[in-house]
Simulated assay, not measured.
Amino acid sequence: MKKGYVPFSMFASLFTIVFLFIVNWLTTPGEIWAIYPAIFILFWPLNVLFKLQNGYKWYSLIASLLLIIVLLTINLVQTPEYLWILYAWLPLLYWPLISFAGRQAGNPTFAVLASIALIMYYIGLNLFFEPGFPWFIFPTFVILWWPLSVTFARRPMLYSVLGSFLVTIFFINVNVLTSPNVIWAVYPIFTVLWWPLSIYFFIYRRTA
């Protein structure tokens, strides 16, 4: 990448940010909304600068902190009565965590421990803010795919069976918690069962 692209990205970003603040001041001076797109625009020169210096790890850290600042500002300005930033800040920090971990991020032990920490955090939020409904099962379902993929992705048959089991447990729980009088979980469960069946018949059975 040419070094001239760095000052160009900085100048173009600064010019755009100044333009946004002028528009903000002329149209709605009572509401400072230009700060939100301005911070996102800063990702352009930051990306160019760190890419030129092969500093992806530090870029991930700075970018995550900027995103957290943006979300925190929006939270405190628009809905200060409810701190929803608590749901987003920790997953954003996992980006630099994985970047600094490097190859260790692909280690099953690292994936399991990091996933457990994130799941426990959401369980704590669930119990503290909204104990009436166990919504932590939704982020838990998503998070569990990380250690599952890292550990079993190279064994497609076992991975498909465990993945189907995870999906089945998830939909059964959602069905029971949200609409126990209507048994609708059988439909997505029936669909996901084709995953291990396809692996067996089109890969293992063919090579047998």
Results as ranks from 00 to 15, higher is better:
residue 125 L to Y: 02
residue 184 W to E: 04
residue 162 L to S: 03
residue 142 V to N: 08
residue 157 M to F: 10
residue 154 R to P: 11
residue 178 T to W: 12
residue 145 W to H: 06
residue 127 L to M: 13
residue 134 P to L: 06
residue 158 L to K: 10
residue 161 V to T: 14
residue 173 N to S: 12
residue 136 F to G: 14
residue 153 A to L: 14
residue 145 W to Y: 09
residue 150 V to P: 05
residue 161 V to E: 08
residue 133 F to A: 03
residue 168 T to Y: 00
residue 187 Y to E: 05
residue 131 P to E: 03
residue 172 I to N: 07
residue 144 L to N: 02
residue 134 P to C: 07
residue 179 S to C: 13
residue 166 L to E: 06
residue 138 F to P: 11
residue 176 V to P: 11
residue 166 L to I: 01
residue 177 L to V: 04
residue 137 I to T: 06
residue 170 F to N: 06
residue 163 G to K: 05
residue 160 S to V: 00
residue 152 F to H: 04
residue 153 A to Q: 14
residue 187 Y to M: 12
residue 182 V to S: 07
residue 140 T to V: 02
residue 185 A to T: 15
residue 135 W to Y: 03
residue 143 I to N: 00
residue 165 F to Q: 10
residue 185 A to P: 15
residue 156 P to V: 09
residue 149 S to V: 02
residue 146 W to R: 03
residue 145 W to S: 00
residue 167 V to D: 15
residue 132 G to I: 02
residue 183 I to K: 12
residue 167 V to I: 13
residue 148 L to P: 01
residue 166 L to V: 01
residue 149 S to F: 03
residue 152 F to L: 05
residue 140 T to F: 02
residue 140 T to R: 04
residue 148 L to S: 00
residue 146 W to E: 07
residue 144 L to V: 00
residue 182 V to D: 15
residue 151 T to V: 08
residue 134 P to F: 04
residue 141 F to E: 08
residue 176 V to G: 13
residue 182 V to G: 06
residue 147 P to Y: 09
residue 150 V to C: 03
residue 128 F to W: 12
residue 185 A to C: 14
residue 143 I to E: 00
residue 186 V to C: 10
residue 157 M to G: 09
residue 143 I to Q: 01
residue 158 L to D: 12
residue 161 V to K: 08
residue 142 V to M: 13
residue 173 N to V: 15
residue 170 F to E: 08
residue 149 S to R: 04
residue 166 L to R: 01
residue 146 W to K: 04
residue 179 S to W: 11
residue 168 T to N: 06
residue 155 R to G: 14
residue 129 F to Q: 10
residue 144 L to W: 06
residue 147 P to H: 10
residue 144 L to T: 05
residue 161 V to H: 13
residue 134 P to Y: 06
residue 148 L to R: 00
residue 179 S to P: 14
residue 154 R to N: 13
residue 185 A to Y: 15
residue 126 N to K: 10
residue 153 A to E: 08
residue 165 F to E: 09
residue 182 V to Y: 07
residue 127 L to N: 14
residue 150 V to I: 09
residue 184 W to R: 02
residue 177 L to H: 02
residue 137 I to G: 02
residue 161 V to D: 05
residue 163 G to R: 05
residue 173 N to T: 12
residue 161 V to P: 05
residue 145 W to M: 01
residue 181 N to K: 15
residue 151 T to L: 09
residue 152 F to S: 05
residue 170 F to Y: 10
residue 158 L to H: 13
residue 159 Y to P: 04
residue 142 V to Y: 08
residue 183 I to F: 14
residue 134 P to R: 06
residue 177 L to N: 07
residue 168 T to W: 02
residue 163 G to C: 08
